[in-house]
Nucleic acid binder design. Structure first.
Lengths: 135, 135
DNA sequence: CTTGACCCTCCAGTGACTGGAAGCATTACC
DNA sequence: GGTAATGCTTCCAGTCACTGGAGGGTCAAG
């Protein structure tokens, strides 16, 4: 298989696949003409990585997970721990975004959004986010 | 004020403040010794940027917001629209993360996490995320 | 007078790609 | 058989928003 076929079948752009080879996630062979020659196994790995990436795992986690994928004697506990850590990070990010969202939504709701210059959003930013002190 | 004072009062690291000057967000003067000389106005701007960044606005949005901050004749509608766009982006990200989280939580729950190698997490990744077909 | 804290600039690296240029290889079509 | 369009190759640079570090000047205290 050439890179184009693998790209189509794995859903990853050729550029990304080359990048994954660069950083050592896969090692396709080479044809006589210098083209990368992918085997089914490479395709499986790429699909694996693609899936892991859509679940938000970092490349380094993907590397570890790939090793575990190939390791017949892996302990599922190791895999589970990586996933749990990642889950915790996701929860943190969600919490952060929700907090941002809440503040921002309040400000947006308070802004009349017309042609006049006064604007609670700008005022909040200008106060550095400290609560308003109308005294 | 030297950069250290401004860093402390704005909560931004000196490196970041220098970077903000580099990209033209602020323009502090210079003392005879070559040190940056910040005025109160610079500090206000930095606090403004810092706040906007914690709310997740990009640097380019900060630039625009700063312009609006300084513009006595701004229309609050313009500000509101930027904030609304940003809000929509945040909502998108939250949705994405929640979807990741849901899938990942299922997999984690299904993994017994002991010394045996069989693991629903690895299996999902290996299938590229396609639903299991036990037939 | 030296020590240490502070400041300066410039370069390089982060993560995970992505875009583009320059140049072979192959394939499709007439 | 020629030629034009793909497709493949490598390498360099850019993205975003910083961050780390080297190498060196400046300033206040003891």
């Amino acid at each position: 298989m050439n890179i184009g076929d693998v790209a189509e079948r794995s859903g990853l752009p050729p550029k990304t696949i080359r990048y994954y080879e660069d950083i050592g996630l896969i090692r396709p062979g080479r044809s006589a003409n210098g083209y990368r020659a992918f085997r089914e196994n490479d395709l499986h790995k790429l699909a694996f990585i693609g899936r892991a990436r859509t679940l938000g795992f970092t490349i380094e986690e993907c590397r570890t997970l790939l090793d575990l994928y190939e390791d017949e004697n892996r302990e599922s506990a190791v895999v589970k721990r990586i996933a749990e850590d990642h889950l915790a990070r996701i929860d943190e990010k969600i919490a952060q975004l929700k907090s941002m969202r809440a503040t921002l939504a309040e400000l947006v709701a308070a802004c009349h959004g017309d042609s006049r210059p006064d604007c609670p959003i700008i005022e909040d930013l200008g106060r550095g986010g400290r609560p308003d002190d109308p005294a």
